[in-house]
Structure formats: C-alpha cells, structure tokens
Simulated scan of single mutants.
Amino acid sequence: MFDGLRLAVFDGFRLAVTTLTVLPVRAGRWDRPTAAVAMSLAPLVGAMLGVILAGVSEGLRALGSPALVAAAVTVAAGALLTRGLHLDGLADTVDALGSYRSGADALHIMKKSDIGPFGVAAIGLTLLIQSAALTEATALTVVTAWATGRLAITIACRRGVPPAREEGLGAMVASTVPLSVMLTAAVLVAALATAAIPGRPWQGPAAVAAASITVVLLVRHCVRRFGGITGDVLGAAAESATTVTLVALTLSHGYA
C-alpha cells in the first residue's frame, strides 16, 4: 500500500512538472487519479519555478544589472520555463470573455490560433505589472508569488468545478482536487508567505488570500460563461494569481 501511494505521488509530481514547466522530466501515467495528484502538487512546482527565477533576479542584480532589466529578464525567463502556455491561456480566456459570447461560441474563440486585442492587452499589461513589481521584490517574494500562481491551478481544479469540454486538459483535471487538499495547499503557501515581507508577517498570507479570492471569482465567471474550465482558464488563473500576489507583496514599499 505504501509503495502504491509513493508511486502515485511520484507519477503525479512528474505529470505536474511536465505539464507546468519545460523541465526535462518524462511523463508517466496520464489519467484522472494521477492528474488529481499533479494538480494538488502544482504549488510545489510553482515554488520550484520561483526558486529558479529568484536566482535569475538576484544573480543579475549581483552582477550590477539595473532593477528593471533584472525584473524584465526574470519575467521573460518565467515565460520560457512554462513555454508561454499560461500567458497564451490568459490571452485566449480574456479574448473569449471580452467577446461577450457564451457557451460554444466563446469556446470557439478560445480555440482560435490568433490573439485578439483583448488578449494582446492582457499579456502586455500582465508582463508590465509583473516586471514593475519585481523591481522591488525579494527572493522570497518571487518564490511566494510563483507558488501562489500555481496554487491557483489547484483551486481551479477543486471538486465541484466542471470542465467546459468533454476532451482536453480541462476535462482531465477538472474537479479532481478534494476540498481538504486544496485548503491544505493554501495553508502551506500562506505559511511560506509569512516570511515574504520582513516585519509584516500578515502581509504575505493576505496577498495569498487576495490572489485566491481573485481566482475563485475568475473561475466562477468562466464557469458561468463557458460552462466550466479549460486548460486556458487554468493559465489565466495562474497568471492572474501571480500578478495579484506580486502587487500585494510589494505594497509595503509605497509606505515603508
């Protein structure tokens, strides 16, 4: 039994890494039980990405790079490490929502290969806000933001949230994460966030809470408009949560 549980966790972790990053890890099983583990472990993968990106940011600053240049390169590295899939999902989701269409018509817009003006604006503004916030971010702030960004995926895949289509990533992962697991993941990320702002242990968990509420509202709106979630919605949730967390964690610099 223990070996079976360990294998399930290992397979789920490999699936999470291959789905959410470009890291060279070979995928194993691909089924809903494995997807449930993978989506539950998404915050851990996000924290790993955060560690890498924090290293990029701190390394460039140590070499004398201007803060804005280091921030922009860090954001670019984040896009490369995720194949830009989350940004693409953000653009497709915003395009569909901006069309004011629902159901199959909105899903058709999401599947189109081109990006409309809403999507272009969403990507541009997201990258701009993230880069600006990262000019004031510490290493732990970066780790917390990317862990929270992937916590958004865990939240979006919680039980009770339906898929918008019968096939695709959304259908595989939708409603796979038990509520208790989602809450545990949120508590662990919030605990990590307590150390993000020295002297303000409440600000990190507050940032995680703000990002989580944003995701819940976004997912609820997408379910109402699309009938459920898709892989694009997961990407939009991840980018939205990362951005909200970065903004919330850097607010102290305005009145410190």
Rank of each mutant, 00 (worst) to 15 (best):
W30E: 12
V187E: 04
D105M: 09
V208H: 06
S252W: 15
G124W: 10
G199K: 07
R158A: 13
I115Y: 06
H221V: 08
R83W: 13
W202L: 14
D88W: 14
R6S: 08
V161Y: 01
T19A: 08
A156P: 06
S102D: 10
A195H: 15
G254N: 08
S113L: 12
A91F: 04
A210S: 10
V142S: 05
G149M: 09
A171T: 06
S180H: 09
A8D: 13
L63G: 15
A147N: 04
W146L: 15
D31K: 11
R224H: 14
S131V: 09
V161D: 01
T74Y: 12
R14C: 13
G254H: 13
D232R: 00
L49R: 01
P33C: 03
G228P: 07
T93K: 08
A91S: 12
L140K: 08
R83V: 02
C222S: 13
R29D: 09
V219M: 07
L7Y: 11
G50D: 01
T194P: 08
V143G: 04
S65W: 13
A67Q: 09
P66L: 11
A79V: 14
V73R: 04
A248K: 04
G124E: 02
V216L: 15
A207E: 01
A185M: 14
S131C: 12
V233C: 08
G12E: 08
A164P: 05
L188S: 06
I129G: 09
D95E: 06
S113A: 15
L246W: 11
I52R: 05
E58D: 09
F10Q: 14
L53R: 05
D92P: 03
V75K: 08
V189S: 00
T194N: 05
F226D: 00
A156C: 10
G89W: 07
L97R: 12
C222E: 13
T82P: 04
A54R: 14
A196V: 00
R61A: 11
E166R: 15
R29Q: 06
A211H: 05
S131K: 02
V17Q: 02
L60G: 08
V244H: 05
C157V: 03
C222W: 12
C222H: 07
Y100V: 05
Y255K: 09
R165D: 06
T184M: 11
D3G: 12
R29C: 09
R200D: 10
R26A: 14
